[in-house]
């Protein structure tokens, strides 16, 4: 199959992290089927997928813009908005639900005044609900930033998140 050498689009800006994205795309020969892998790389590098990123990736992989957007919004792991400084993921898997994950989520919702998937106005904390972390043996489970905590109580949760809210870091 003959390949047409379109001029490769250039990265949205000078940010060095685009090199990581470029190397992922190069590794897969800029094939359209590498869209999801590339989006993973972008999200890992930048924390989220913005329009510029989607436009760049779509153009580089020869994927229609609407398809790129369709894929990015189909998979809940991808986010189109930047996350807060801290993220708190409450597991809502069955085991956690049976052990009161809803109460944990409720406590955070009222404390942070946001719904799952949103970030507080000051950009400090993002609240997320996960389908299942696979830590069912430790239900109910919560992930504070990258760290998994098991058998979490509403009090412990509130205390931990309150710490984030008060710090200026």
């Amino acid at each position: 199959m003959a390949t047409i050498d379109f001029a490769r689009p250039t990265a949205p800006n000078q940010d060095k992290r685009w090199r990581i994205v470029e190397s992922t795309m190069r590794r897969v020969g800029h094939h359209p089927r590498a869209l999801i892998e590339t989006l993973h790389t972008v999200q890992e590098a930048f924390g989220y997928l913005d329009r510029d990123a989607l436009r760049y990736v779509a153009a580089s992989l020869h994927v229609p813009l609407s398809r790129a957007y369709g894929v990015a919004t189909f998979y809940h792991y991808f986010t189109l908005k930047p996350a807060g400084q801290h993220t708190c993921v409450v597991c809502t898997g069955t085991a956690c639900y049976i052990k009161g994950a809803n109460q944990l989520l409720g406590a955070l919702k009222s404390m942070l005044k946001v719904e799952p998937g949103e970030t507080t106005g000051d950009g400090k904390v993002s609240l997320l609900a996960a389908r299942c972390l696979g830590s069912c043996g430790l239900a109910p489970a919560v992930v504070y930033d990258q760290e998994v905590a098991g058998k979490v109580s509403a009090e412990g949760l509130r205390a931990r998140v309150a710490q984030w809210m008060s710090h200026d870091a």
């Binding site: 359209p32 089927r33 590498a34 869209l35 999801i36 892998e37 989006l39 993973h40 994927v63 398809r67 369709g70 894929v71 189909f74 998979y75 809940h76 792991y77 991808f78 389908r131």
Partner: peptide, 26 residues
């Protein structure tokens, strides 16, 4: 390796295939 991206339906064989091909997992 192919990383899933948070779609339960991709456990279904044809959806999983669509996802591996870089498309919406339907």
């Amino acid at each position: 390796l192919r990383l899933g991206a948070g779609a339960f339906v991709c456990g279904e064989e044809t959806a999983l295939i669509a996802s591996i091909e870089g498309r919406r997992g339907t």
